[in-house]
C-alpha cells in the first residue's frame, strides 16, 4: 500500500466540489480515522458526524468510492488499494455541510410507518411472555438489530426515484412491530406502510440487504409486509 493516501472529500452542501487531501497511510486505519486526520491536522472546517467509532451508534455512514458504508468499520486498505479514495456524504438525504447529511426525513419516515410500539387499551396484568421459538419472535429478531445508520436508505434506488417512499429502514422497523405480539397498532400500521409510498413500491433490488452493515434483510421484511397487507386487504382491514 502507498505511504500516502490521496483522499478526495466532498466540500460544500448541494453545491460543492471534491477537495483532495494527502493523508499518511497507517496500519489498521479506518476511513473514519482518515476523515478525522483531515479535520484535526489539515482542515478544521471539515464537517462530519461520528460518535462511538465501534459500529454501535450508526452515525458515521458516508459514501466511500460510491458505496454507502460505516466509515468506522471500513478499513482504508479495503477500499483504497491504489492509494486513492473518494468520500462523499450519504445519498438520498440533503447535505448540511461536507459529509454531514440532514437525517430529518429519514426519521420522519420511521414515524410515518408507525415505527413505535402501541400498547393495548387494557395493559396486561403481568409481563407478557414471548417464547423465543415462536414464528413471530424469530421474524422480529431478524429485523430488530437495526441501528438507524441510513446505509440502506442511501443505497435504495426507489428512494431516489420516489422521495415519498418510506424506505427500507422504516419498513424494516414496521415489520419488527408487526411481529410484536404485544403490540395493538397493526391495523393502523399496515395502512401506513401499504401503497406506492410504502412496501408496494419496493422493486426487490435488494441493495439495502446487500449494503446493510448489520447483515439484516430489509428486503425480506418488506416482502413480509406485502404478505401482511395482502391478508389485511383480503379481510377488508386495509
Amino acid at each position: 500500500m502507498a505511504a500516502t493516501l490521496h483522499v478526495s472529500v466532498w466540500r460544500g452542501a448541494a453545491e460543492g466540489e471534491l477537495v483532495v487531501y494527502d493523508v499518511p497511510a497507517r496500519p489498521s486505519q479506518t476511513v473514519l480515522d482518515v476523515v478525522t486526520f483531515i479535520q484535526r491536522r489539515l482542515d478544521p472546517t471539515l464537517s462530519y458526524r461520528f460518535a462511538c467509532r465501534v459500529g454501535m451508534c450508526g452515525s458515521c455512514a458516508m459514501t466511500v468510492n460510491g458505496v454507502a458504508r460505516w466509515t468506522c468499520r471500513t478499513h482504508i486498505d479495503k477500499v483504497a488499494q491504489s492509494g486513492a479514495v473518494e468520500i462523499r456524504p450519504l445519498a438520498n438525504l440533503p447535505v448540511i455541510k461536507d459529509l454531514a447529511v440532514d437525517m430529518t426525513a429519514f426519521f420522519e419516515k420511521w414515524a410515518r410507518a408507525k415505527g413505535h410500539y402501541k400498547p393495548p387499551a387494557q395493559p396486561p396484568a403481568d409481563f407478557v411472555r414471548v417464547p423465543p421459538k415462536t414464528v413471530e419472535r424469530q421474524a422480529a429478531d431478524e429485523a430488530i438489530e437495526c441501528i438507524g445508520c441510513a446505509v440502506c436508505y442511501a443505497s435504495c434506488e426507489v428512494v431516489a426515484w420516489n422521495p415519498d417512499y418510506l424506505g427500507p429502514a422504516a419498513l424494516n422497523r414496521a415489520w419488527s412491530l408487526v411481529n410484536d405480539v404485544r403490540d395493538a397498532g397493526n391495523d393502523e400500521r399496515l395502512r401506513a406502510v401499504a401503497g406506492d409510498a410504502g412496501c408496494h413500491a419496493c422493486h426487490s433490488h435488494q441493495a439495502c440487504t446487500l449494503r446493510c452493515p448489520k447483515q439484516l434483510s430489509p428486503s425480506a421484511s418488506i416482502a413480509g409486509l406485502k404478505r401482511a397487507t395482502l391478508r389485511a386487504a383480503l379481510r377488508g382491514k386495509l
Binding site: A194, G195, H200, T229, L238
Partner: peptide
C-alpha cells in the same frame, strides 16, 4: 389514491 386502492392495484 388511497393505500387500500394502491394495495388492490398491486394485488391485481
Amino acid at each position: 389514491m388511497s393505500a387500500r386502492a394502491e394495495t388492490w392495484l398491486w394485488i391485481t
